[in-house]
Design a protein around this nucleic acid. Structure first.
Lengths: 223, 223
DNA sequence: AGGGCATTGACCACTTTGGTCAATTTAATA
DNA sequence: TATTAAATTGACCAAAGTGGTCAATGCCCT
């Protein structure tokens, strides 16, 4: 792979990982202009000099993160399945496909817990100097065709009058909501601020919602 | 009503409104420590001196906003109904009650568009100097009994195996999700950045989801 | 030993920060 | 209209924070 930031790419995985996550968290929380390099390098456990050595500028760092995140998101729905050969398109059942995505998303969330917040906020970035570049990246990515979740899907299994697109949307809101709910629960139960999310707890609750949805939106013969 | 910030309370409504909303937006977006007084007074259309004249300090301003927002949220589920006498507890049907709340929430969202983001983020506030005070306010509010949405509710109307608590949660995620979705849609369709949300559009989409949920989670005889 | 890369953090000029206050405007009263 | 009290302003302040630089150092491989 050709890469502009080869100094960064050549670092060992642990360090790269820390630098990515620090950026995602701080940029994601405060936005481009209010995010401080100082905070980020502190969180990443490197020196300020190093970060500029890798990326040259705050802007470059931000854009690199954005591109990285965008690619990860694409892989989330587009990438190879568990067996690394098939795509999830082999499965034609809505909820089986969903299960596939859930597993990928879980892995990604464990790897980059704050990436979700980051990409969600980035497109709203107002800072003039990054605004245009973000749109440029978006444009480029938009051209690449993304696998459609609904391609070759057994939509007939849904009860009449149930819109599968809406169901997918509903479930995606669920997954977000479940995470927030458990975070909030941890917070008010005075757990240590930096307690990591218990992903089993998240998954378990998420599954409960999906199960409820499936049981009531699918035709009985397909349950 | 006794109030500590009577200088603020005595202002005319329009000005108070602007000051509240500016605070909600900026604090809500950047968090306590990164939110700049300068930005807020600019947005509120007043001078920096005035704000300190009203509230004395950034911290006081923030805490006032938090208390205000918390009270509004309580009124949202707890306050008087449309007719200003009855509470929504008169209605025993899940979706009728929900309709009541929807209308209140709508009014509140129109009045304070950024209050939701503000109270959602505030409890996670890390800044040491406000952290404790937030928890104090929370504690005080927690003591006051809040009307329970499920008091005297016709839960039997739900299909067997459907947990009404989960349904309520699901719908609340919907309402959030619908707003985000339409905001994003406006963004990518290159609408003017400051285009106000079209609440009719939001409501219409929200209703579609609620309708789908009701049709599939309620026993047929109650549709 | 020495050459080249990786890494550091003190340092820079500059901006922004929360907060102050003398000066001015506004509004009410006499 | 004159007097006074309250409301409002923005220039100003010291202090902290900003993105970015670079000489010095550390580290690894011949």
């Amino acid at each position: 792979m050709i890469c502009i930031y080869e100094r960064f790419e050549n670092l060992d995985e642990a360090k790269k990982h820390a630098i990515l996550n620090a950026g995602f968290r701080i940029f994601g929380e405060y936005g481009y202009s209010k995010a401080s390099i100082e905070d980020m390098v502190k969180e990443a456990g490197i020196s300020k000099g190093s970060l500029f050595y890798y990326f040259g500028s705050k802007k470059n760092y931000f854009l690199f993160l954005y591109e990285y995140a965008a690619n990860m998101m694409k892989q989330l729905v587009d990438g190879p399945g568990e067996d690394r050969i098939s795509s999830y398109l082999d499965k034609t059942d809505f909820f089986e496909r969903l299960e596939d995505i859930k597993n990928r998303k879980m892995k990604m969330t464990i790897l980059h817990p704050y990436m979700g917040d980051f990409i969600k906020k980035a497109p709203f970035e107002a800072a003039k100097d990054v605004y245009k570049d973000i749109q440029l990246i978006n444009q480029r990515l938009a051209h690449e065709r993304i696998t459609d979740f609904f391609d070759n899907l057994d939509v007939y299994k849904f009860k009449d009058g149930v819109d599968p697109y809406m169901v997918l949307q509903l479930i995606s809101w669920c997954s977000e909501g479940v995470v927030n709910q458990i975070q909030l629960k941890n917070l008010i139960s005075q757990k240590d601020k930096n307690t990591e999310l218990d992903y089993n707890e998240v998954i378990q609750l998420y599954d409960k919602y999906v199960d409820m949805i499936k049981r009531n939106f699918y035709k009985e013969e397909y349950l």
